[in-house]
């Protein structure tokens, strides 16, 4: 669906711009500039304000990124459970650094703060789905699900 169609679905929702952005991201993985401008029109706010919302929230990206978004929790409980080794393993396996996307557009790799699955640290999420007690050796298997 086009971003116009997606945003239109939320036009009648008071304060619905954030919900609309979530829906656009689900389709495009990021918020294209035209989508932000369209949201400003639909929700009747200045473009600067719509951009302000898009840039405030860490789950929204205003730049293109890979389709499957891998987020790695770097909060203290995951940190002391060995998150750094998981970072190294992910970077090696994907051939990119944290904050980058793979050339084939398949994966984006990001840090996040706690995702609320701290019973089994360290934790990563892919498209918000949590993977628990992650160790470097299970990374290839996890990634294979998305290839």
């Amino acid at each position: 669906m086009s971003y116009k169609g997606i945003i239109a679905r939320y036009a009648e929702v008071p304060g619905g711009i954030i919900e609309a952005f979530h829906a656009v991201e689900k389709e495009f993985s990021f918020l294209p500039e035209e989508a932000i401008a369209e949201a400003a029109r639909v929700f009747k706010v200045p473009a600067a304000e719509a951009y302000g919302v898009a840039s405030f929230y860490s789950m929204f990206s205003t730049e293109t990124r890979g389709k499957n978004i891998i987020r790695l929790c770097e909060s203290a409980p995951c940190h002391i459970a060995g998150a750094a080794e998981v970072v190294a393993a992910l970077e090696k396996e994907l051939g990119i650094r944290m904050g980058e996307s793979t050339n084939d557009g398949l994966f984006a790799l990001e840090f996040t703060e706690c995702v609320g699955q701290c019973q089994a640290t360290p934790v990563i999420t892919i498209n918000s789905k949590p993977y628990l007690d992650v160790t470097p050796d299970i990374i290839p298997n996890i990634l294979a699900e998305y290839k």
């Binding site: 304060g15 919900e19 952005f21 304000e49 919302v53 929230y57 929204f60 996040t112």
Partner: peptide, 25 residues
């Protein structure tokens, strides 16, 4: 149900209100 978008400060009650209203938190 309304969804946040990854901002810890939105747990603060007035920031949360701003966010439901569709603003920066």
């Amino acid at each position: 149900v309304r969804m946040g978008a990854g901002a810890y400060v939105c747990g603060e009650e007035t920031a949360l209100i701003e966010s439901i209203e569709g603003h920066r938190g």
